[in-house]
């Protein structure tokens, strides 16, 4: 793989001031429902999330990265994979694809809230015409779109954008698990390290899919996680937004 631009590490870093710490990636509702109680449960949860929301988000991020890169024609990045029948549908078209893959209103809201925060942080950090166009066309874009566009701005490839998205899909809930379950951070990081190869598989599948049309991007669902996400909105006492 191409060498990782250091700027891309900023994007993957939890210290990026983009409000990611306010979201548990569905872990808090799973903990509240006693579906996740220990390290073994957490491993299952992260596996399931990677295979569903993680893959969907990674594919959207890869597509967004390719599309954003087309705004900067001198960049050495593959052209956009929007081969859909409707032709180039713009950022709103990709945002609609994210909507169609997110049936849970709670998860749509969480994705847009995180997208808006990330857009603010990314545009303050990098200047890129693709990122600017996204912000101009969609008021609060879905998080994977912003992540993909920011990855392009940081000089990353669609495959790297997908890797950052897949990593975030697991690392976010993992760090929330330390707070929610009082797990040893070293144990949790061991779980994440064991998942790294799986993150790469997800990023490979996502990037390969993003080379085709937006219509056909993966859309794996997680019925239980959708259910828990909606239940969470109604829960009284909670540490995380989602």
């Amino acid at each position: 793989m191409a060498e990782i631009p250091a700027a891309l590490l900023l994007l993957a870093d939890a210290r990026l001031p983009a409000g990611g710490h306010a979201h548990s990636g569905g872990l808090e509702p799973a903990v509240a429902a006693h579906a996740v109680t220990d390290l073994a449960d957490l491993r299952d949860f992260l596996h399931g999330r990677l295979a569903t929301t993680g893959l969907t988000g990674a594919a959207l991020a890869a597509a967004a990265c390719a599309y954003a890169a087309a705004y900067a024609p001198d960049a050495d990045i593959p052209p956009s994979g929007d081969g859909s029948a409707g032709g180039r549908r713009g950022w709103r078209g990709l945002d609609a694809e994210a909507d169609a893959r997110t049936p849970s209103p709670a998860q749509r809201r969480a994705s847009r809230a995180q997208g808006r925060s990330l857009a603010r942080a990314a545009r303050a950090t990098w200047s890129h015409p693709g990122l600017d166009a996204l912000a101009a066309e969609v008021r609060a874009p879905h998080h994977p779109l912003v992540l993909g566009a920011a990855a392009a701005a940081a000089g990353g490839t669609p495959r790297q954008a997908a890797a950052v998205a897949a990593y975030g899909a697991a690392a976010g809930p993992a760090s929330a698990a330390v707070r929610l379950l009082g797990l040893d951070p070293l144990d949790v990081h061991r779980v994440l390290a064991d998942l790294a190869a799986r993150m790469d598989e997800v990023a490979d599948e996502a990037a390969a899919a993003a080379a085709g049309g937006w219509d056909a991007l993966p859309a794996p669902s997680a019925p239980l996680l959708d259910l828990l996400a909606e239940a969470h909105v109604r829960a009284g006492l909670r540490l995380f937004e989602s």
Binding site: A96, P223, L225
Partner: peptide, 18 residues
Amino acid sequence: PLLRHELRVGDGHGARAV
């Protein structure tokens, strides 16, 4: 697009969470 929705069963990835 209104809905794009996949269910994958039996590929061994976190089935218990899904």
